[in-house]
Computed example of a mutant assay.
Amino acid sequence: MSPTNGNNRRLNPPRSYASKVADILRDEIQRGVFRPGERLPTEVVLGETFGVSRAVIREAIFALKQDGIVESYQGRGIFVAQSLPEATFRLARAELNDSDEIDRVFEFLLAHEAAAAALAAERRNEADLSRIRMALEAIDHAIERGENGIEQDMAFHSEILAATKNHLFVSFGAFLENRVRHLIREARANSSRKGLTQYVQEEHRAIYAAIADGDKEAARNAAETHLANAAARLRVYSAVTPVPAR
C-alpha cells in the first residue's frame, strides 16, 4: 500500500529529518497503512516522497528496526514486522532549535518534577534530606571551581526523586535524564553566560527548603518555578527576568 498523502509529505526543519521520517512511518504502520509482512517502498522512493537523502531514510529505518517495527532481508527489502511490539513510551531527543518541541518537553518535565518534589516533602526522612543537601552543596562547589555543575545538578534532582520512595519516579527520571541532559546543559550554559547562576541556586535552595519543611505545596511551586525558568533560559518562554524563588 502506498504511503498516505503521496508526495505531499516533504519535511521542514528544525527537527531531525530522520526522526520525522521514522515518526511518520511508525504512525502509518500503527494505523495499518502498511500491514504486518508488507514491504515498504525502496529507499529511493521514500527519499523522493519525503524529499530527503537515502542516508536520512537509512537512519529512520534503523530506528524502526531498533524498535522491532520493521525487519530487513538482504536482497528483498524492508518489511513490516509480522508481530508488532506493544506500544512503548518514546521521547525523541529535542533539537535545541525546535522551540515548540522544547516547550512540550519542559511542560512534561515540569509536571514530573513538581509531583516528585511534593511527594518528597511528604515522605522524606533525615537521611534523604542529608543527601539532597549534600547534592545542593556539591553544585555550589562545582560553581566555585568554574564548572557548569551539570552532573551535580542532575544528582540533586535524582536525590529528590529517590525521596519520593516510589521506584517509578526514579526509573522514569533516569529515562528522562538521558533525553534532556543536553537541554539542561544548555540552560546552565545560558545561566553562566548571563550571570544567572545565583538565580538557579536560589531556585534549588527553595525546593530543598520546602522539602525540609515538609511543605508539599511550597515544594511543588518551587519545582514549577525552577522548570519554568529553565525553559526561559532556553528562550522557550518569553520571560526575560527569572521568577523569584518562592
Score class of each variant (00 low, 15 high):
residue 140 D to Y: 15
residue 60 A to P: 13
residue 80 V to C: 01
residue 160 I to S: 07
residue 194 K to N: 10
residue 30 Q to F: 07
residue 82 Q to I: 00
residue 197 T to C: 04
residue 109 L to N: 03
residue 9 R to W: 11
residue 89 F to R: 07
residue 174 A to W: 06
residue 205 R to W: 02
residue 112 H to Y: 07
residue 115 A to W: 00
residue 101 E to S: 08
residue 144 E to Q: 13
residue 162 A to Y: 13
residue 171 S to H: 13
residue 131 R to G: 00
residue 118 A to I: 00
residue 93 R to W: 13
residue 139 I to Q: 07
residue 61 I to L: 15
residue 25 L to T: 14
residue 78 I to E: 08
residue 106 F to H: 04
residue 212 A to P: 05
residue 165 K to D: 10
residue 236 V to E: 02
residue 238 S to E: 07
residue 10 R to T: 14
residue 54 R to E: 09
residue 198 Q to Y: 08
residue 16 S to I: 03
residue 92 A to Y: 13
residue 165 K to Y: 15
residue 134 M to Y: 05
residue 174 A to P: 00
residue 200 V to I: 09
residue 70 V to L: 07
residue 124 R to C: 14
residue 52 V to Y: 11
residue 168 L to S: 11
residue 127 A to E: 06
residue 74 Q to G: 00
residue 235 R to L: 13
residue 74 Q to W: 12
residue 205 R to S: 03
residue 80 V to T: 08
residue 24 I to E: 14
residue 18 A to M: 07
residue 231 A to H: 03
residue 11 L to I: 15
residue 84 L to D: 04
residue 18 A to V: 10
residue 46 L to F: 04
residue 138 A to T: 07
residue 113 E to M: 06
residue 163 A to G: 09
residue 12 N to M: 12
residue 75 G to K: 10
residue 133 R to S: 13
residue 242 P to T: 07
residue 99 S to Q: 09
residue 152 Q to A: 15
residue 46 L to P: 01
residue 140 D to W: 15
residue 137 E to G: 06
residue 13 P to R: 11
residue 138 A to W: 14
residue 208 Y to K: 10
residue 102 I to N: 02
residue 41 P to E: 08
residue 31 R to Q: 11
residue 91 L to K: 05
residue 171 S to D: 05
residue 191 S to I: 03
residue 45 V to N: 13
residue 42 T to H: 06
residue 23 D to V: 01
residue 234 L to G: 01
residue 125 N to M: 00
residue 15 R to V: 06
residue 217 E to F: 15
residue 189 A to C: 09
residue 236 V to G: 01
residue 210 A to H: 08
residue 36 P to M: 02
residue 176 L to P: 03
residue 98 D to F: 05
residue 100 D to R: 12
residue 77 G to C: 08
residue 122 E to R: 12
residue 69 I to M: 15
residue 65 K to N: 10
residue 111 A to E: 12
residue 133 R to M: 08
residue 63 A to E: 13
residue 17 Y to N: 10
residue 241 T to S: 04
residue 78 I to L: 10
residue 106 F to N: 02
residue 97 N to Q: 12
residue 200 V to M: 05
residue 18 A to W: 14
residue 115 A to D: 10
residue 29 I to S: 02
residue 31 R to E: 04
residue 59 E to S: 15
residue 129 L to W: 02
residue 37 G to W: 01
residue 204 H to W: 03
residue 74 Q to C: 00
residue 193 R to E: 15
residue 17 Y to P: 14
residue 41 P to I: 01
residue 22 A to T: 03
residue 220 R to K: 14
residue 174 A to H: 11
residue 125 N to E: 07
residue 157 H to A: 09
residue 54 R to F: 04
